[in-house]
């Protein structure tokens, strides 16, 4: 009963994805090592680029989203919600930011637990009730606890290098060496594109698995998977389907209601970083059931 928030299948899939990613990367590195094409320059530039992005992730993300760090006196309630959840999950309290935006959203960033920032939009605070807001914040805290920023950065490190190579190799190659190595450059270029494509799909899958994990983490911290399910429904607009009008009032209209068609083919699923809301809600409901029985 206590293990209701575990999902061994999910962990196995996550492990397999990471394993495949590592295999692709290793093959790529050994391929780069055996070809005589000078790729070191690009690798170093990409490395520095990723390092800066990782190191300043908190500032970069806050800046690009327009988030503002809020003090305890500005948002006392938000601070209390977060510090209590941190106490239960035994996490250092992150910095807290608010983004002036009506779209309900939340994110966590920062390279370590100590450097973490949890941000929410004003829209999120307005639309969700207390329990739902708590559940969404617990989801973000799980990202921090699971070190998702680090995991995804490491996972995409070589992918980014492959992307750099694919984009710049022709140019650099022509400049530096003339036409003698063009066959080798061509091969590296093609392999880089392939590696980038394959790792892109694997990273997307990994990222979706991390989302599911964070949902489970939220449920573990708050003890209320249903709150997160309800928050997800509200955020995605699905909640509009759950009517608030009295049955007697709408009875006559019922025949005219249209359930919005569920969109998204399986190809779209491959490309998205977040799993489908319906799938996440189904998983949360499963957890709630496991808790009850």
């Amino acid at each position: 009963m206590k293990q209701w928030y575990r999902d061994t299948g999910l962990q196995a899939r996550m492990f397999l994805t990471m394993f495949l990613l590592a295999a692709v990367y290793l093959a790529f590195i050994s391929f780069l090592a055996t070809t005589g094409v000078g790729t070191m320059g690009i690798v170093v530039v990409a490395g520095i680029f990723i390092f800066i992005q990782y190191f300043y992730s908190d500032k970069l993300v806050l800046w690009s989203m327009g988030g503002k760090i809020v003090s305890e006196s500005e948002e006392p309630e938000l601070h209390t919600i977060i510090s209590r959840l941190c106490q239960i999950a035994d996490l250092p309290k992150p910095r807290i930011a608010v983004v002036e935006n009506n779209v309900p959203n939340a994110f966590a960033t920062g390279r370590s637990k100590k450097n973490a920032v949890v941000a929410v939009t004003t829209g999120l605070m307005h639309q969700l009730n207390h329990g739902e807001l708590e559940a969404v914040i617990a989801h973000e805290l799980s990202h921090v606890k699971n070190r998702d920023m680090l995991v995804i950065t490491i996972a995409s490190f070589i992918s980014t290098i492959a992307f750099f190579l694919a984009r710049n190799l022709m140019f650099f190659g022509m400049m530096g060496r003339g036409r003698r190595d063009s066959g080798g450059i061509m091969a590296v270029w093609i392999v880089s594109i392939l590696v980038w494509l394959v790792s892109f799909l694997l990273i997307r899958a990994l990222s979706r698995y991390r989302e599911f994990s964070a949902d489970r983490g939220s449920a573990a911290i708050t003890g209320q998977p249903a709150q997160l399910a309800s928050a997800l429904m509200k955020i995605s607009g699905t909640m509009k389907r759950v009517p608030t009008d009295d049955l007697r009032k709408v009875e006559g209209m019922n025949a005219f209601f249209i359930i919005p068609a569920v969109s998204g083919s399986s190809l779209m699923k491959l490309f998205s970083t977040h799993p489908q809301i319906e799938q996440r809600i189904a998983k949360l409901e499963e957890m709630q059931q496991k808790m009850e029985f």
Partner: peptide, 9 residues
């Protein structure tokens, strides 16, 4: 953390 398990202390 690597496998994304959130274990509460």
């Amino acid at each position: 953390a690597f496998l994304g398990k959130t274990k509460l202390p």
